[in-house]
């Protein structure tokens, strides 16, 4: 019975959670939020799905894989992808910082690591919006948090 309720709630919360975390991510530069909070929210929502359906079910139904132990999760299962996710997040964060340096080399100036910039652009429908390079970094933060948290939760959950 509890499972049914939980699954129902999960179905409701899952999309909502993604939307909220997306909003938090986007507004971070101007309002409370940012990559970290968005990341934790996303991870929590997915964790909720695990709680409702179980890790193995997610593996089987969503990814069509057969995994049992924690180690198998690490090697073949979704944890493998989470690991890639946080590594990629780190890579994005560093790459964003390196881009400035690279731009410096191309233009023959010295621009330090992680120098950010921003532009205001006018986009149809949205009007006057701001494009900040720091968002790339924040995206990296988001990916790291989601990947790392889900890794830990999956591993603990699989025990």
């Amino acid at each position: 019975m509890t499972t049914v309720i939980l699954r129902t709630i999960t179905r409701l919360v899952l999309p909502l959670g993604f939307v909220v975390s997306f909003a938090f991510f986007l507004q971070g530069h101007n309002l409370p939020g940012g990559g970290f909070i968005a990341g934790v929210l996303t991870a929590s929502v997915v964790a909720l799905a695990y709680l409702a359906y179980g890790l193995d079910v997610v593996e089987e139904d969503v990814f069509g894989r057969e995994v049992e132990t924690a180690v198998e999760h690490v090697q073949h299962g979704v944890v493998r992808d989470y690991q890639t996710l946080y590594a990629a997040g780190l890579a994005v964060a560093v790459a964003g910082g390196l881009a400035a340096m690279l731009y410096g080399y191309l233009t023959d100036t010295t621009i330090p690591f992680m120098t950010q910039t921003f532009r205001y652009a006018t986009v149809p429908l949205f009007g006057h919006i701001e494009l900040a390079s720091a968002v790339v970094f924040d995206l990296g933060v988001y990916a790291v948090v989601v990947g790392a948290l889900l890794t830990i939760i999956s591993v603990v959950g699989a025990e």
Partner: peptide, 20 residues
């Protein structure tokens, strides 16, 4: 504080697994 919270959070998570 945000930085400290996140670092503390990560360390605590590890500590919990270590306890286990």
């Amino acid at each position: 504080v945000l930085t400290a919270v996140v670092i503390g959070f990560a360390t605590t998570a590890l500590l919990l697994v270590l306890v286990y």
